[in-house]
């Protein structure tokens, strides 16, 4: 009985987690994109974009590691971006 209750609880927890993910999958992608754009705008000097005044940059640079890693990940995936985008928005 106890074990049944336990596995029910686990099952419910998985269901809850799954539903929570279901409710945010696209927003998380959007968040990723926004963070990547933020990094690109501030770190854009690397790719030839006009960069913001050095002062701003120097101030936020030490905290940008996550954003840069998001941007790196995004750019690493650029060779496959079309299909990935199609996969994000599921059709049929």
């Amino acid at each position: 009985m106890g074990r049944l209750l336990d596995s029910l609880k686990r099952g419910f927890r998985s269901f809850d987690k799954g539903m929570r993910e279901d409710a945010t999958s696209l927003i998380r992608k959007q968040l990723d994109e926004e963070e990547s754009v933020f990094a690109l705008l501030t770190m854009g000097a690397f790719s030839g974009l006009p960069s913001p005044p050095t002062g701003v940059l120097l101030r936020i640079l030490p905290h940008m590691s996550r954003e840069i890693s998001v941007m790196n990940k995004r750019s690493a995936g650029l060779d496959d971006v079309f299909s990935q985008t199609l996969g994000t928005f599921d059709i049929d």
């Binding site: 409710a23 945010t24 927003i27 959007q30 968040l31 926004e34 005044p53 701003v56």
Partner: peptide, 27 residues
């Protein structure tokens, strides 16, 4: 000049945090 940029970045950051907030609300 820096203020113009900084204000833009603040705005963008606000948006990111708002999106984060939406995910946070659920997850």
């Amino acid at each position: 000049v820096s203020l113009l940029w900084t204000e833009q970045l603040v705005k963008m950051r606000k948006r990111i945090l708002a999106t984060r907030g939406m995910v946070e609300n659920v997850q």
